[in-house]
Design a binder for these strands. Structure first.
Lengths: 126, 126
DNA sequence: CACTCATCTCTACACTTGTAGATATAGTAT
DNA sequence: ATACTATATCTACAAGTGTAGAGATGAGTG
């Protein structure tokens, strides 16, 4: 399942809350950028049609939607695709960039070090 | 400057060689997937129009193009955008994923460890 | 009951993207 | 000089995307 930028933006609203109505999502996105209710609702409709959202509840006329696909399940192919597209499949290049250039706190760094240590061990043991 | 998937695929041909003619690029991409010469040439034209490619030389009727933007310059905003879009700006999440899940050789791991060590030092010293 | 407001539904449109065909044209070989 | 071939140019189109307006419709209010 593929997601356009706007679709992904909307999905994040659902991954960050159990269920949301279209007007709620609209308000939420509106707080960041100017967008019409219709635009948001169209995206929600498209997401529902392709099975990324489902109707979770109804209250009066108001429909509450919920994510029907997990964030992690969606991210994985996106990462793969991005690495293929931008780094010709070489994920190390991206890793290097992230560790060198992106903001990292001391905690972040220590956590990442731990991951590497464990991977190294797994390499040796396996 | 933004690039579509296909545009990026074509740009990689130019980042991997000094200059290339449209037929060369076509052959190169054709070796991976079936695509018409016209399709490739259209993309090259679009890339030239937006200033990502420039005419580097001509031989008979054949035009040789060259990248007019550096790979690194293009990658940077793409990475930023990807992290914003998929990880809501949290690059650590992506870093964790890469170090945990993606293929890494022992050399890769050691290199990444070195980067982290230096960053940690920079944090303490700075 | 009539009205209004919130929400939904439907339709639409311009722009980008991936794709290709038709046609023109400049070299090249005979 | 003629025909052939490789290359370029131009035009086109369907699908996907971001965006919005018009109109329907149901729910609560006086």
């Amino acid at each position: 399942m593929e997601f356009s930028d706007f679709e992904l933006e909307v999905m994040h609203c659902f991954w960050g809350a159990e269920h949301q109505s279209a007007p709620q999502v609209h308000k939420s996105i509106c707080s960041k950028r100017d967008i019409s209710y219709s635009a948001v609702k169209t995206i929600i409709d498209r997401l529902e049609k392709k099975g990324a959202l489902m109707r979770a509840a109804q209250e009066g006329r108001t429909i509450y939607y919920a994510a029907a696909v997990e964030r992690g399940k969606v991210r994985l192919p996106m990462i793969k695709q991005f690495i293929n597209k931008v780094f010709l499949g070489k994920s190390q290049s991206l890793a290097v960039h992230l560790l060198e250039e992106e903001d990292l706190s001391l905690d972040d760094i220590q956590y990442l070090e731990k991951i590497l240590k464990e991977r190294k061990k797994a390499l040796k043991d396996g």
